[in-house]
């Protein structure tokens, strides 16, 4: 199917992109890879009159280390995250998460910023970003501001980015010593989006007890959330199988689970618990626990 007619803009700076956004407002959509937007346009579920393609804006792509953070340009593709030697050495879980997105064609076009700004409830990155405590850098006419991941996902495909702003960078802290993280998901058999995906990051203290656990859940509800019950269940504990099982049992708490063809509320809630357990188990193992 063909999309409805639209005007295509390819600005060469963030400033120019912001001006276009300010001019066309609701009639405009930012194009950042297009692997969600273009299919919606082809089905005519989305009919923006203006597409502002960020592909030619310099400086929005690339990964660099900035202190204890990895700074990932919004237009960095999933493949770049997946294959980056820097990401693999400093934050392997992020590379692994990217590798689970779609297929190679999707990963070579789709971008980190596109995914996080689109906030598909079944996207993979959101769970990892929550578990890793990422920050989103938005740029507007008045300059830049940083939004913590816990304030980012507002609801179904809604985020904290302003209507007059562009997400330009994602900053992800590198894990401290004695930490481990993992993202595991149950993929939709057709789309490979996450029916349920859980990311867990744990830090152990000198005695092997959990000093910090951070867990994000995606797929099951209308937005990715932090599994606070699981985190609380881990804190201060020796994370053996029984402790993990007990903590993971809280994984569906706070998730507004949506039933569909792939799963009832009961089944998806169960998958949240199963994958929380598996992700925690792997994270603890990687932390040396």
């Amino acid at each position: 199917m063909y999309p409805a007619a639209f005007d295509y803009h390819a600005p060469s700076s963030v400033k120019e992109a912001l001006e276009l956004l300010g001019k066309h407002k609701d009639d405009a959509k930012l194009l950042a890879g297009g692997h969600s937007l273009i299919p919606m346009m082809k089905l005519r579920l989305a009919q923006p009159k203006h597409l502002i393609d960020l592909r030619k804006v310099p400086g929005l792509s690339g990964i660099k280390q900035d202190g204890n953070m990895l700074a990932i340009g919004a237009m960095t593709t999933h493949w770049e995250v997946e294959s980056s030697a820097l990401v693999k050495s400093k934050l392997a879980v992020l590379s692994e998460t990217a590798a689970l997105i779609g297929d190679p064609a999707v990963r070579n076009r789709g971008t980190v910023g596109g995914s996080i700004a689109h906030a598909d409830p079944a996207a993979d990155y959101p769970a990892a970003m929550i578990a890793l405590g990422a920050e989103m850098v938005c740029e507007g006419a008045k300059g830049r501001r940083t939004v913590k991941v816990d304030d980012w996902f507002k609801g179904l495909m809604t985020t904290a980015v302003g209507e007059d702003e562009i997400l330009v960078e994602v900053r992800v802290p590198v894990l401290p010593a004695s930490s481990g993280a993992a993202y595991l998901k149950f993929p939709h058999p057709a789309s490979r989006f996450a029916v349920v995906g859980v990311a867990a990051a744990v830090t152990l203290d000198g005695k092997g007890m959990c000093s910090k656990a951070s867990v994000g859940v995606t797929g099951a509800g209308t937005k990715a959330i932090r599994a606070k019950g699981v985190e609380a269940g881990c804190a201060g504990k020796k994370l053996d199988a029984a402790a993990i099982e007990a903590a993971a049992s809280k994984a569906a708490e706070g998730v507004d689970v949506q039933a569909d063809l792939q799963g009832s509320v009961e089944y998806k809630s169960h998958l949240c618990r199963v994958f929380a357990k598996r992700a925690l188990t792997e994270a603890v193992k990687r932390a040396g626990g």
Partner: peptide, 24 residues
């Protein structure tokens, strides 16, 4: 294991009408 055309019992809509929904 995965394929199946599913119609909504109420509306009669084909629920698995795209490759994002119909699992090959």
């Amino acid at each position: 294991l995965c394929e199946g055309a599913v119609y909504d019992g109420q509306s009669g809509q084909l629920v698995t009408g795209t490759m994002m929904d119909y699992a090959l």
